[in-house]
Structures are given as C-alpha cells and as structure tokens.
C-alpha cells in the first residue's frame, strides 16, 4: 500500500513540480507571484483535449501543440495586461494576475463551455504489475509517462538556464535586475520569456493530468495553490527547490489521504504551507534574505 501510494505521490508531485517551476522562474526574475498560473494549466488541458479528441492528433503533437498554443495566449495576454506594469509598484501587477485568473477562465468557458469534460487517455491503460517485497504494485503507463515527461522537461529547463543566452540572462536578472539591465539585458524580454516558459510548463502539466481528473474551467485554482505551496516548500524562486518541493508535496498529500483524511487533503496542503512559511520561510533550498536599510 505504502509503496503504491508513494508512486502515485511522486507522479502527482511531478505535476506540482512542473507548475511550481513556472512560479519559480517568474519569481526569480520579477520577485512576483502569478496567481493565474493554475489557469494556464487548465487552458493547456482544454487545448490538449481539443487537439486530441477533435483533431485526433498523436500524443507528441498534442503535447507540443498545447504547450505552444498556451504560450501564445500567455504571450498575448502578457503584452496587453502585464507589461505596462513592470515598472510600477508590484501590488498592481499582483492584483492584475488575480483578475487574469477570471479572464482565462472566461475564455475557456466561452470556447469549451462550463461542463466538466472527460479527457480520454492517450496512453495504454493497462497497468503493469511489479512484484515488490511480497506485494504487487500496479504502475500505470500514465504514471510513468507523467514522471518521464516531467523529468525530461525539468532537465530541458535546467539546460536552457545554463546553456542558452536567454537562460543565462534570466539568471542574471534574477540575481541583480539593475546590473543585468546595465549590462544590456532587455529586462522586458526576459520577463516575457519567463511568463511564456511558465505557461508552457503548466500547459503540458494540464495535458498530462487531464485524463486523470477530467477537465473543467475551474480546475486551475486548487492546482495553482498546491503548486505554489510546492514552490514555497522548496524555496520560492529556486528551480531545484520547485522540483523537490513538488515531489515532496505530492508524496505528503498522498500519504495524508491514505492515513488521515481525503476530505481535508487540501487543508493539509495549507497547513504544510503555513508550517514552511513560519518555520523556514526561505524553503528547503532557498536562501535567507537580509533586510537592507
């Protein structure tokens, strides 16, 4: 039972990690949250659903398509709604991202309606039974795909941050925005890039989870909160932190619903958030800040 739950937890956690990475890249460049992040996860799921069922495209194209299209939507919305606010007090942008939540949900409602939609699985559903210490553990291909794709994307992101010019510029901005700007890095472009990456990751997560939970316009909210908790747990703004936080949260949550209560799973997440924020606000892998006067 325990190991079974663990695998489920890791697979769930990988999704949290994927979305949490979005928060991390945005926070590291902009020192800002993005409350609509969960809704791009939802948008990705819907786009994936359309590509998969209506156009009958193969899985690879569904994933790339959903990622790219969602990024495009983000790109447009960022241009119109966020960009003019980067040089203003951050609260305005934070509130705007709250408004964005409802805008994205409305877009989804208009296109796909407000009913819950079933997302047929794109992978083989036959579980693989693995004997383990006298037990038999069922691993679905879904689980494996989720873990595999998430791991691959995280690797890709790390490589992107380390090897590409844009990625290095992103790290520079996150360390010192002013200095980076003086060195000729176009801050606005970098911020746009972080939003786009965040949306793309969330969209892929959406397509991965669509078949598990079904798809509806309101599915983003709680996912967003959980991914945020994961990001905080690992250390807000840290990329390895987001991955670690995601997986840990996934496991913690699965174990909670196994041993404590399913109904209060989300409350449990909230309590974890509180514990982390009050006890170790910099997260597991984050760095403590010194107030400068």
């Amino acid at each position: 039972m325990f190991v079974q739950a663990l695998i489920g937890g890791i697979s769930q956690g990988a999704i949290y990690a994927l979305i949490a990475l979005g928060y991390s890249v945005i926070y590291s460049t902009l020192k800002m949250g993005h409350f609509a992040q969960g809704d791009f996860y939802m948008l990705g799921a819907f786009i994936g659903l359309s590509l998969s069922t209506q156009l009958g495209l193969p899985a690879v194209i569904v994933f790339t398509g959903a990622g790219l299209l969602t990024s495009l939507v983000m790109l447009g919305l960022e241009r119109v709604a966020y960009r003019p606010m980067y040089n203003r007090p951050m609260n305005a942008l934070l509130i705007a991202t709250l408004g964005m939540q409802y805008v994205v949900q409305q877009i989804a409602k208009i296109i796909w309606g407000s009913d819950v939609k079933r997302f047929p699985s794109m992978f083989d559903n036959q579980a693989i039974h693995v004997p383990f210490m006298g037990d038999s553990i069922a691993i679905t291909p879904q689980n494996l795909w989720v873990i595999g794709i998430c791991a691959a994307l995280m690797m890709a992101l790390v490589l992107f941050m380390k090897k590409t010019k844009t990625g290095i510029a992103m790290s520079a901005v996150s360390m010192n925005r002013k200095a980076a700007s003086l060195m000729g890095v176009k801050i606005t472009t970098i911020i746009t890039a972080t939003y786009t990456i965040a949306a793309c990751l969330a969209a892929v997560a959406g397509v991965l989870m669509g078949p598990v939970y079904s798809v509806s316009f309101s599915m983003g909210g709680s996912m967003g909160t959980k991914a945020m908790t994961a990001a905080v747990m690992g250390g807000f703004g840290s990329i390895p932190g987001a991955m670690l936080g995601g997986v840990l949260l996934g496991i913690a949550e699965t174990l909670c619903s196994l041993y404590i209560s399913t109904a209060y799973k989300d409350v449990f997440t909230f309590i974890i958030l509180l514990i982390v924020l009050f006890w170790k606000p910099q997260g597991i892998l984050g760095q403590a800040k010194i107030t400068k006067v």
Partner: peptide, 18 residues
C-alpha cells in the same frame, strides 16, 4: 460572463487607474 467582466475590469483599472 460576469466573472470574466470582473477580471477584465480589475486588469483595466490596474492598468489605467491604479
């Protein structure tokens, strides 16, 4: 469309009338 209208209003106000 009400929620969407609220969302758009929040963004517009933040953009043009903080």
């Amino acid at each position: 469309y009400l929620d969407g209208v609220y969302g758009v209003m929040i963004i517009l106000v933040m953009l043009f009338m903080p």
